[in-house]
Structure formats: C-alpha cells, structure tokens
Amino acid sequence: MSNRADVRRTYDRIADHFASTREYAWPEVEAFVADAPASSVGLDLGCGNCRHAELLADRTDHVLGLDASRGLLETARSRALERGFEVDLLQGDAARIPLEDGTIDLAVYVATIQHLPTEASRRTSLNELARVLTPTGRALVSTWSTAHDTFDETESFDTTVEWTLPDGETVDRFYHIYSPEAFEAAIEDSDLELLAFELSSGNCYATVGGS
C-alpha cells in the first residue's frame, strides 16, 4: 500500500460492503451544514456513498461528489436515486482537484485526508481545497486521530487498518493517523484559514475558509 492507485483500488474492491456500513451522516457534519448559509455550489470531497453530499443538497443549489473510487461512486449513484437527491459525480484525486479556482461555496472533506499516503499529497490536498473555495466559502475538514480510543500513540503515524469483507477476506487500507496537534498545525500551515477546531469521538474537525 504505497501509492495513490492502491488506495483507489482498495476502495473499488470493498465499495459495496463499505458503503453499506456508512448509512448515516455524522452529527458533527450535520451541525456544520445546518449552520452554513444557503449556498450556490457544494462539494463533498472524498464523497464515498455521498451521505454527506445528501446533506449539502439541502443547503446548496448544486452539489458535486468527488471520489477516487469508481466503485464508491456507483454506490453514491444508487443512494442518490433511492433517496431522491441530486449530485454530480466526479472521479478524481483530492490532491489534484479538477475544479476551477473559487467555484465552491460549501465543502466537506470528511475522513479522507487520512488515506493520502504522503505528507506532500496531504498538504497539497488542503491547498487545493483552499484554491477551489470562493472568498467567503467554508469547509469542514475531518480526520481520525490519535485521540481515538483505538490508539495508544500520541504522535502522528502511518498504519494499515484491515477491512473485513462479509466472506471473511481482509483488505488492508492505508491510514495516516494525525495527532490533533499535528492536524491543527497542518491546517494552519496550509493556504486554508483555520476558523474553528474541535475534537469529537476521536476525530478532529477543522472549520476553514479559503485562501
């Protein structure tokens, strides 16, 4: 598990089962979206099955869902049809976003940056998010962190976490586990403007503005 195509391939393999375990939106994301002003264009970066794009669809005129995994995008397409919300799906890389500068008013980048395997790609993805946000645009960036009960570590580290398919087969997934301090520093060192930071259920949440 060392390169970017591997991450995409992993999620293509586990897409259906993974999406079936990701039915509900996270309450922290619901609160962020509920507090946001009604907006024109929304983006769910690393959208998976689009459970959070579904929230954005209530607050924006037009929602985009971007993910590296085609398999996950198919689960998103099914969910949008079943639940009756509109989302434009794009296959792409969170570190090389295929959107023009200043086009996104409201974005969520939830539990995705932790799968980017290099420091450079994680930093670039934050700068890319800053680039695509409008001057008044807002985003919520979250990651799993060392503050979660799963971990004894206090410093950031790389690891693999097994995904177990229904037939018992396991698939390794790359994770970079940030310490809360390192994640906050990564946001502050990026082109994003850090507006608020909180820890909740072992996850870090940064509310940010664009560059």
Partner: peptide, 21 residues
C-alpha cells in the same frame, strides 16, 4: 484527455487511472 464513463467523468490524473483489476 479524460474519459466520461457511463455518465461519470474520470478526471483522475493519468498515474492513478489504470484500469481496475
């Protein structure tokens, strides 16, 4: 060039795009 595949544009950079096994 980036293909549109069954209605979804594949805008992955070429180094991430090779077909899925």
């Amino acid at each position: 060039t980036y293909p549109i595949e069954d209605g979804i544009p594949n805008l992955l950079p070429p180094d991430m795009r090779e077909e899925t096994p």
